[in-house]
């Protein structure tokens, strides 16, 4: 479904990613792990079109994504959440989610200005769907509160609902449990499992090993901009390179800072 081929990215002289290749199959929960600064978030920024690769190709369902604007990539079916939460703070939870449906609301200027039935029906459907998505992540009771008033964990869940509102085929989650306590983590894990069961393909970046091992069917390990291992969770656990680079030390360390 998503294929990265020999992707490299350098910022000036700094090689952030070198010849990164991997494939995310449809229906999978795919994990990308690696120590802080390994270049994980850069991978997401490349996929979503926020930055362009220095070389290599990224393709989604067989079509290249290079040179496609971020909002067009979203419309092709890739949605993401952010490591540092980026909800629309001054908007209600409901509006946050409805913003995600932007590309799927299709009414004419006349319909909008005159409040024609087509416009009203679509807006009503959007609200119904937004309530559904919010209850899916357990936030429907707060639908009319401002996003700013929500706790850290709830804002992450809101981001998830907002990403789902774009009707993605592939969902990119950038450290979804960073900075959460154990209770919040297992709660969010249940939510993500539930989403995966609905047939979404999920690509998750994460530090928390237990979380990744429990969730993903396939894992790639990134270290200093290179993929050093890829395989099933059990294989990754046993891989000596991975143990040396990552698992052997500090796997429960503070995960808030930038990757």
């Amino acid at each position: 479904m998503l294929e990265l081929t020999q992707v490299s990215k350098h910022f000036g002289g700094v090689e952030v990613l070198q010849n990164v290749s991997f494939t995310v199959q449809a229906g999978q929960v795919f994990g990308l792990i690696g120590p802080n600064g390994a270049g994980k978030t850069t991978v997401f920024n490349l996929i979503t079109g926020l930055i362009a690769p220095s070389s290599g190709t990224i393709s989604f369902n067989g079509q290249p994504l290079t040179g496609v604007a971020p909002h067009q990539i979203t419309r092709r079916g890739i949605a993401r959440t952010f490591q540092n939460i980026r909800v629309f703070k001054e908007m209600s939870l409901l509006d946050n989610v409805i913003v995600g449906m932007h590309a799927h609301l299709d009414y004419s200027a006349a319909g909008l200005l005159l409040s024609l039935p087509g416009f009203r029906q679509q807006e009503r459907q959007a609200r119904v769907r937004a309530h559904e998505l919010l209850s899916m992540v357990g936030l429907d009771k707060n639908a009319y509160d401002l996003a700013d008033a929500m706790s850290y964990g709830d804002q992450r869940k809101l981001e998830l609902a907002r990403a789902l509102a774009t009707e993605p085929k592939l969902l990119l989650l950038d450290e979804p449990v960073a900075g959460m306590n154990t209770g919040e983590k297992s709660e969010l894990m249940r939510v993500i499992v539930r989403i995966a069961e609905r047939g979404y393909t999920i690509f998750v970046i994460e530090h928390d090993m237990r979380f990744v091992m429990g969730l993903c069917q396939r894992i790639a390990v990134l270290n200093f901009g290179r993929i050093i291992a890829e395989g099933k969770p059990e294989e990754i656990k046993r891989n000596p390179d991975v143990i040396e680079a990552y698992l052997g030390r500090d796997d429960e360390s503070e995960t808030v800072s930038a990757a």
Binding site: P70, H71, T74, A79, R86, F88, G100, A103, A165, T166
Partner: peptide, 8 residues
């Protein structure tokens, strides 16, 4: 940035 990634 978030707005663009919502398809706007």
């Amino acid at each position: 940035v978030a707005a663009a990634l919502m398809g706007i």
